[in-house]
Computed example of a mutant assay.
Amino acid sequence: MSEITPDLVRHLGVLARIQLSDEEVERLTGQLDVIVDNIAKVSEVATPDVAATSHPIALENIFRDDVVDGQLTRDQVLQNAPDAADGRFRVTAILGEEQ
């Protein structure tokens, strides 16, 4: 059995800035105890000759060549813009007037 106590759960709640009721402390004490025990069981089974993996199946990126294919004109790009000026998108200032 692990050493998860109600006092430890209350302390963790304070550290996490979570206000826990007595019922929550009691419930979490049991749940965290089970979690810690299960992690300990897995740790007993783990052997140093088995490599750690982050994914059970090897992943491989599949890249394609970048091919330049037909470019839009500036007018085509801006034709559906809600607002444009001087050949650019016009957006609302978000940094204020100090720019």
Rank of each mutant, 00 (worst) to 15 (best):
D37A: 10
T73P: 01
N80E: 10
D83P: 01
N61L: 03
V77G: 03
V50K: 09
E44W: 07
T29F: 00
V77A: 08
D37L: 08
D7P: 02
N38W: 11
A84E: 13
A16K: 02
A52H: 14
H11Q: 15
G87S: 00
Q99P: 04
V25S: 00
K41D: 11
I18N: 11
S43V: 12
T73Y: 02
I18V: 13
P82D: 12
L72W: 12
I57H: 09
Q19M: 12
V91K: 03
S2W: 05
V34P: 02
D7T: 04
T29I: 01
L72N: 14
V91M: 06
L78Y: 03
R90Y: 11
L59V: 10
I62V: 14
E24F: 00
E44H: 07
I4A: 11
V42P: 08
P48R: 09
T47D: 05
A52P: 11
P6G: 15
L72T: 12
V9A: 01
V67G: 03
D7C: 01
V42D: 15
A51W: 11
L12A: 06
Q79S: 02
N80C: 03
R90W: 13
I35S: 05
V50T: 15
G70C: 06
G96W: 13
G70W: 06
V67M: 07
L12D: 03
G13R: 00
V42C: 14
R74F: 04
D86M: 01
Q71H: 10
R64F: 11
D75R: 07
V91W: 04
R90E: 15
L95Q: 12
P6F: 07
D49Y: 11
R64I: 09
H11M: 15
F63V: 08
E44N: 09
T5D: 00
L32Y: 03
L15P: 01
Q71W: 14
L12I: 10
A52E: 15
S21G: 06
R74E: 06
A51M: 13
E44A: 13
A93T: 03
D37I: 07
D33I: 00
Q31W: 10
D83A: 13
D65Q: 07
H55E: 12
D65H: 02
T29G: 01
G87T: 03
A84V: 09
Q31E: 15
I57D: 14
T5E: 01
T73K: 00
A46R: 10
D86G: 03
V68P: 11
G30I: 05
D22E: 11
R17H: 09
L20N: 01
I62E: 09
N61I: 04
V25L: 00
V25A: 02
